[in-house]
């Protein structure tokens, strides 16, 4: 029985969130998204010329994401720098989660590069990365249908919870399911759904429902951060 969460949150409560847009001056667009102890920085460069040439798409621009955890970002063990099987996969799913909203048809043969870096992680990094990347893309002025919000949901033992932290993911006295979900807030469409663990169909649907309930809170933070950047100077 998982009666009380390790950090004392309610079962449908997110960790504290903060966000900021435009933190990397040299990038065309950038954002920081922090949820609990997970911090994601996203920097967007482009649209710009794409090399190697064979990757070019003459019909529309392409999106290229790169997920990277800094060596000191984990729980204490050094994260080996450089690409790994895991970071390659996460780069890909983040890209797929963002693609439905970005419109690069005005920029054929070009690329938009998104670099997502993590100075500190405590589970839910791909979701934090998606939130940061969506804001950074908007900050870079790329045409988008909407932002993307993402948060993981799941079950710890017999309890459905929102936004698992690492302690919950590593819960040992019962089964755990970690389900990262990304959603396009205006339509409710889901652009990322993965799962690690085991869960029944009913619980999965209920968990996604819980995600939809809290998505608005994340969206509000993203929106406010973007607006804040541009109202500065008054």
């Amino acid at each position: 029985m998982y009666k009380k969460r390790f950090d004392g949150r309610a079962f449908n409560e997110l960790r504290p969130i903060s966000a900021k847009a435009g933190i990397i001056k040299r990038a065309d667009g950038s954002a920081m998204f922090k949820i609990g102890d997970t911090i994601a920085y996203a920097a967007v460069y482009g649209p710009r010329d794409l090399y190697p040439k064979f990757l070019k798409d003459p019909e529309k621009g392409i999106l290229r994401c790169n997920y990277n955890m800094m060596p000191f970002s984990g729980s204490g063990d050094r994260v080996r720098p450089g690409p790994s099987r895991r970071s390659r996969e996460l780069s890909l799913v983040i890209e797929k989660a963002l693609l439905p909203v970005v419109d690069l048809s005005d920029f054929p043969n070009s690329v938009v590069d998104v670099f997502i870096e993590y100075p500190q992680t405590d589970a839910g990094s791909r979701c934090a990365g998606i939130c940061a990347a969506a804001m950074a893309l908007a900050d870079a002025g790329i045409a988008m249908k909407d932002l993307v919000v993402a948060v993981s949901v799941g079950r710890v033992d017999d309890q459905l919870v929102v936004d698992l932290n690492y302690d919950e993911e590593a819960y040992e006295d019962g089964p755990v399911a970690d389900i990262p979900v990304a959603m396009i807030p205006s339509t409710g469409e889901i652009s990322l759904l993965q799962m690690d663990g085991e869960v029944s169909k009913e619980d999965l649907l209920r968990a996604i429902g819980m995600m939809k309930e809290v998505a608005g809170k994340i969206y509000d933070v993203q929106k406010a951060a973007l607006k804040e950047k541009y109202t500065k100077g008054e």
Partner: peptide
């Protein structure tokens, strides 16, 4: 886009605040 809205009668205009 992130932009400013201008209203001209029934036509809505958006001036983007960033972009290439």
């Amino acid at each position: 886009h992130v932009g400013l809205v201008y209203i001209e009668g029934k036509v809505l205009k958006l001036v983007p605040l960033s972009g290439r």
